[in-house]
Amino acid sequence: MSEALAGYGLVKKYGSATALAGVDVAVRARESLAIMGPSGSGKSTLLHVLAGVIRPDEGRVMLGEERIDRLGENRLSALRRDRFGFVFQSGQLLPELPAEENVALPLMLSGSRRREAVIRARRWFGPLGLDGLERRRPGQLSGGQAQRVAIARALVVEPDVVFADEPTGALDQATGEEVIRLLTTVTGSLGAALVMVTHDAGVAAHCDRIVQVRDGLIAGRRQSAVAPTRNGAAS
């Protein structure tokens, strides 16, 4: 299977500090990749470079056959909207929008009609265990529920790649486990790749592969010991 997303020889410097010192990394469709590392290791920079948020100083980022690290800002913005999904630690949901409209927002941004966008958004509530919460606002949801809404929003555009940045950072362990299991299985069932930054080994263990980043370099790669079974069925 070809790579959904790949970075080759990625270098990124901030002034004299080197965040990435030549990193090669790739993830296939349906595959999940955890990026681990201590604070300041460059793992977040790596995620942002792969997601087209930051331009690398050297190296290439390939989304399928397309080189994306030299695209213009508007083009990249559209790419992030339509072909990537993002799940962050917290604060990504608009507090005044009901859950279903938060999920529908990316579709509306891409030009879908509102009615259609909301109908498509609602389909994600069942599989993510959010039935009955469609009209709740983020403030009325628990932390785990809010993260599942965020996952629905990341997946609703049926992206090629989902990026998750410490998605369980604000949750207790049991809730975090639950959220991460949903994130990996649902992403996989959609046929998308998952790239996740975490410092939690327990969370990383749910991914197919783990890379360790240290001082801007890949310090280790391994298959996850407890990689979950992926059913592989594209939705």
Partner: peptide, 11 residues
């Protein structure tokens, strides 16, 4: 929220 929205591609 605005920053994360923009990061996720919101113009």
């Amino acid at each position: 929220t605005y920053r994360l929205l923009r990061l996720a591609g919101t113009p």
